[in-house]
Design a protein around this nucleic acid. Structure first.
Lengths: 96, 96
DNA sequence: TAATCATATTCGAATATCTTTATATCATAC
DNA sequence: GTATGATATAAAGATATTCGAATATGATTA
């Protein structure tokens, strides 16, 4: 009766990516539309390298993607439906 | 336009508790009914102190509760609706 | 009470994560 | 090309997490 642990490892990894206040706030901001790094930095009130690092983690984990926009770089949610669902779940449960 | 960061801190804290494969597996097992520590240990295939540690984290964070049952201790999901929702969400998105 | 089964706690080592500071890269304008 | 604005990366230090080993506590029965 061995459960397939791999799935839990993957799910846990995604949840871990989501389990940081700054990253949740970034996702929340991107849920209302794509934004460039400087905007996100202003909205989330975290210094620039740190924002970049968190964006990098989100991107590596397939949660956001980015596109160059002049000398700025815009980030947006990649799998919006899934994230929206997880977010509506958190909201429904009064977690955000 | 400052967002209330506190909520994100709380939500992130909950997600962090969920973001461990062993804890996800424990929750998954408890989703089908209360079980005592030894049963969980067998199902999840983790040594006893480690199971106890994870159960303790889950309990401290209000995800499970326990009741003494003879010389055994049974654990069960505390806020089943919320957990079921988060789980059905993960399942729907093929994460577990 | 002593023995035993069941579970919990403590501690240390290894590892991972987070933040800050400094520096590097990249795209554009001049 | 160089300068500048925007973003990324690297290194370092601080903190947190995880696990296993040893030990402790708790409940029950003899």
């Amino acid at each position: 009766m061995v459960k397939i642990k791999g799935k839990y490892v993957k799910a846990a990894a995604l949840l871990k990516v989501l389990s940081h206040p700054t990253r949740l706030m970034i996702i929340s901001e991107l849920a209302s539309g794509r934004k460039c790094v400087n905007d996100i930095k202003e909205l989330v009130k975290v210094n620039q390298p740190n924002i970049s690092q968190h964006l990098s983690i989100l991107k590596l984990n397939g949660i956001v993607d980015s596109r160059q926009n002049g000398k700025m770089k815009c980030y947006f949610l990649k799998n919006e439906v899934m994230i929206q669902e997880i977010f509506s779940n958190l909201k429904k449960n009064k977690l955000i």
